[in-house]
Design a protein around this nucleic acid. Sequence first.
DNA 1: AAGAGTTGCAACCGCCGGATC
DNA 2: AGATCCGGCGGTTGCAACTCT
Length: 404
Amino acid sequence: MGRAPCCDKASVRKGPWSPGEDATLKSYIEEHGPVGNWIALPQKIGEFCKSIHMHVHVHNRVWFVVCGDVFQASYSSGLKRCGKSCRLRWLNYLRPNIKHGGFSEEEDRIICGLYISIGSRWSIIAAQLPGRTDNDIKNYWNTKLKKKLLGKQRNKECHVRKDRSKRGLTKAAASRNEDFSVIWETGGDWYGLATEVNHMPPASIDQSPNPNSHQTSLTEYQLRGRLASNSNQLEQEPAPIEADFLHYPNYMVPPNCYNPIERSTVVSCLRPLGLSNGLMSTRYSLSNEDNINIPVFAENNTLPQISTGEVDRRDLQSHLFEYSRYVGNIYSAHEAMDRSMCSSGALSHGRGSGNVWEDIISSTSQLLDENYGGHEAVSSQWVGGGRGTGGSSFGKSGGGAWDT
DNA sequence: AAGAGTTGCAACCGCCGGATC
DNA sequence: AGATCCGGCGGTTGCAACTCT
């Protein structure tokens, strides 16, 4: 049984808010303070508006001047809006000190730095930019900032490819990675992006409560080690690699052979499970149909969650997120990519499903032996230009940006 | 000038997790 | 313990404005 809707969809208005509706909502909140229950708000506003009607001389400065007709129409029945719509309108548009547009270079840097570090957690990013809303930042990123950065990076791609070949990858290995590049051919150069951002001053995260923000605090999101314990700066130095084994006793991750492309491939092998209703599940299945190249090993050749044939995306994200702490900033862009791919459920580029971890591990061992002369020969200084993609669709306007 | 294509952004949708019953 | 409610969130859509041909 599905959940009952929060409001009667048939009787609520949808679409753009009128000035009168804005004025009604704004006046009510200014009069009564923070809203405790948004769902009940429209009805309460109805009662409020009746009182306004009796004392219109006090309030008419607010909205009669703007559009008296709309006020007259709404006062008897409150706002014919869903409570959630009211909340959104208030948070994104009506609340005081909201800034729209005109992002500064400094704000660009902060947004980029945080996006690379934590992915598309717009509410967290917005909490670091007073006056900005998550919706605004999200739109800004999707429509402008991303294109701006990727445009810069596109020019560097050929250099990265040359550099990759210089590092002595065999033809076979290069070919496998080219295959990977083809998979992500619509993506951007996340490595370059990370490099670019890492050359910027580190984005700092203010952990103190922001009185102007209605967003969730950072600590609530458990950034888990991203923040240095005694500082509000993003952690700059990777922890000793041994720490990995402390945190993941079941995961034996050879420290020198878990490079960005390989790690991304782990994710690329996971496919969202289709549900009978045609929607996609938040759980993912594994396939070994790609050129799998995953030097991730577990005790007894098993991975506790993944080997069951499904992996919850949160488990995966948690694992990758934790791992990214130890490999430093250079991989953080791929982490962002991974997170983005997972959260958008955009892993459906492949075919079929399956789960043969033994094959994966076996082929990986073979591959590493063939091409690197053993696992430990894989350089931690990998700079292969693995081209990632956020994976999600960026609305109908987003597609062209990747192709230009 | 006009139609097609693109962009920007407000608003919506549906999912998730915490709180409460 | 399980059901339900609600706030919060990220992804997506609709559409007006703008640009291109």
